[in-house]
Structures are given as structure tokens and as C-alpha cells.
Design a protein around this nucleic acid. Structure first.
Length: 276
DNA sequence: CCTGAAACCTGTCTGC
DNA sequence: TGCAGACAGGTTTCAG
């Protein structure tokens, strides 16, 4: 489910309220519930609880696809992976839902619940987020991410461009949807070697990544099936899951191939395999 | 070191 | 209707 735009949408709701819940800022944590032990990656539950209970949530941020709850004693980091979702409930609720894996209980009677059908999602707590942040690559909307920086970092990469864009240690936040959509906007075939891109193609890709992610955020992310609701970007897909349909730009049929074990959608006319 | 496949999981949809 | 198989927004681990 969640790539940068979906995570950003969730973070804004947790920070400012919205999406059916109110803000987490200023909430005092009074308890922790863990229904699927593996969801808590580290530390062990006893230490985790000791560190979290009694803390107040100062701020909610995003880095790549990580949701970051900043507290006085450190950072609670959450990764939703494929099917994770967070909801904030007020007052005393009757019970939990199927697939609820973890919850933070607040002193005001509310709670934040982590629901995750496929159990891939993870939660961490650490005094500093650097252990995780240090492994992440460029942040697409950071001022330090520029066409020049992007060009410099990409030119020696001997990897297919689709695989490279999915590598979170290269650029953080792109997933399967936004990678396919960005490559179509940039007119670049997913199997092109990163190092073979021309300066113009790299610049086009830079602009495509930012504009695609920005449009995703402005539409509150993409809602494709039963996972993650409220987004509208799925109505504006150009290639993702449009195999066999006509390309909106040139009318040719959208094709599907597998790249790095991921379904990959592209237009063979708009995204030629060889530069002509 | 790099690459590709498998693993981690459950739910949905398609085709026989 | 039932059932096997494919596929799904992601990342880590393991084999070669």
C-alpha cells in the first residue's frame, strides 16, 4: 500500500488531525498493546513499554516511508510495508478489529491502532532515528535533492533504472506505483541501465519523480483495493495496473513485464527501450 | 561485492 | 461450488 504520498497523507493526519482522527501531538502515552509480537522489531516489549509509557508525542514526521513519532525519550518509528494502516480512535472503544497488531493507549482515553493484514509492518523505538535514517537515500522533497545531485548520483549506477528507483538507500519513498508512473512521465523504459540515461533524460526523470509524488500527495495517495482508503490518485494512473489498456498519451497498448520480482507497467511507444 | 530468488504473511480474484 | 494458482502498495535474508 503505502509509498511516500500515502505515508505523507497519514503523517499529516496524525500531526494535524483529519482522515477520521484527531492529532497525536501532545498526547500522553499510558499503555501499549501488542497482538502480533513480530510487529515490534525492537527493543523487546518490556523495554519498549518502559521507554514509551509516560512520554508525550511532541511531533509527527516522515522520512522516506517511515512514520516518526517524536517523544522526549526518543523516536517511535513505524513502517507500514504492504498492508499497514494507522487509525486514531477517541473515547473508550468496544474492541479491536481483525488484523489489529499493535496499539498505543493514551491517557485521555484515545488510542492509535496499527492494523496490518499481512503482518509485514514493523515498529521500532530508539533514542535516535539515525540507525534507520542513515540507511536511507535522498529525500525527494528535500532542498538538497536537486537535478545536479540526482545526475551525479545516478551516472555510475549499473542497475536497471526501475530497480534503482525502488532501492530505498538510493532514493527514499518511491514504491512500485510511483516508480512506474514516474518512468512513464519521463519517457524512460524501466529496463534502461541507469548509467545510460542522457542528461536530458535524468532531468526529465527528476521532474517526473517530483511531479508524480506531488500529484499523489495532493490526491491523498492511491487507493487500489481493500487496503488504504481515501486516496484518489488511482484515478489518474497512466500505466500502473493498466495492462492492455490504451496509453492516454499515444494510444498504444500498455504492457506488463516483471522487473526485480515486481510487476512493471509501461508504454512501449512513450518509453522506448532504445533511445532513437 | 553484487544479483536474483526466497521468505515473511493474508486476502482477493481468475480460471478450470 | 471448489480449489489451485497468480498476484498484491515492501523489505530482509540467503544462496550462488
Amino acid at each position: 500500500m503505502p509509498e511516500l504520498p500515502e505515508v505523507e497523507t497519514i503523517v499529516r493526519a496524525l500531526r494535524d488531525g483529519g482522515r477520521g482522527g484527531s492529532s497525536l501531538k501532545g498526547r500522553l502515552v499510558s499503555g501499549v498493546e501488542l497482538f502480533w509480537p513480530k510487529t515490534l522489531a525492537s527493543p523487546a516489549l518490556a523495554d519498549f513499554s518502559t521507554q514509551i509509557i509516560g512520554q508525550t508525542i511532541d511531533d509527527v514526521k516522515r522520512r522516506g516511508k517511515y512514520i516518526c513519532l517524536q517523544m522526549q525519550s526518543g523516536w517511535l518509528l513505524i513502517h507500514l510495508r504492504m498492508t499497514g494502516d494507522l487509525r486514531v480512535e477517541e473515547i473508550a472503544q468496544t474492541g479491536y478489529l481483525p488484523h489489529d497488531r499493535f496499539a498505543l493507549i493514551f491517557s485521555d482515553g484515545g488510542r492509535m491502532v496499527f492494523n496490518d493484514a499481512r503482518k509485514f509492518g514493523r515498529v521500532w523505538f530508539d533514542k535516535t532515528p539515525e540507525n534507520i535514517f542513515n540507511k536511507l537515500g535522498m529525500e525527494p522533497f528535500d532542498d538538497s535533492f536537486t537535478p545536479a545531485v540526482f545526475s551525479e548520483s545516478i551516472k555510475n549506477k549499473k542497475k536497471q533504472i526501475k530497480t534503482l528507483l525502488l532501492d530505498q538507500s538510493f532514493i527514499a519513498g518511491l514504491g512500485n506505483i510511483y516508480t512506474d508512473e514516474s518512468l512513464h512521465r519521463a519517457g524512460i523504459h524501466p529496463l534502461r541501465m541507469a548509467s545510460s540515461l542522457t542528461e536530458q533524460e535524468v532531468e526529465n526523470l527528476f521532474n517526473a519523480i517530483r511531479s508524480t509524488l506531488q500529484e499523489g500527495i495532493s490526491r491523498n495517495g492511491a487507493s487500489i483495493d481493500w487496503v488504504y482508503r481515501g486516496g484518489e490518485f488511482q484515478n489518474n494512473f497512466r500505466v500502473y495496473q493498466k495492462t492492455g489498456q490504451a496509453c492516454l498519451v499515444c494510444g498504444n497498448i500498455i504492457e506488463r513485464i516483471v522487473v526485480g520480482q515486481r510487476g512493471t507497467h509501461f508504454c512501449p511507444i512513450c518509453q522506448p527501450e532504445r533511445v532513437v
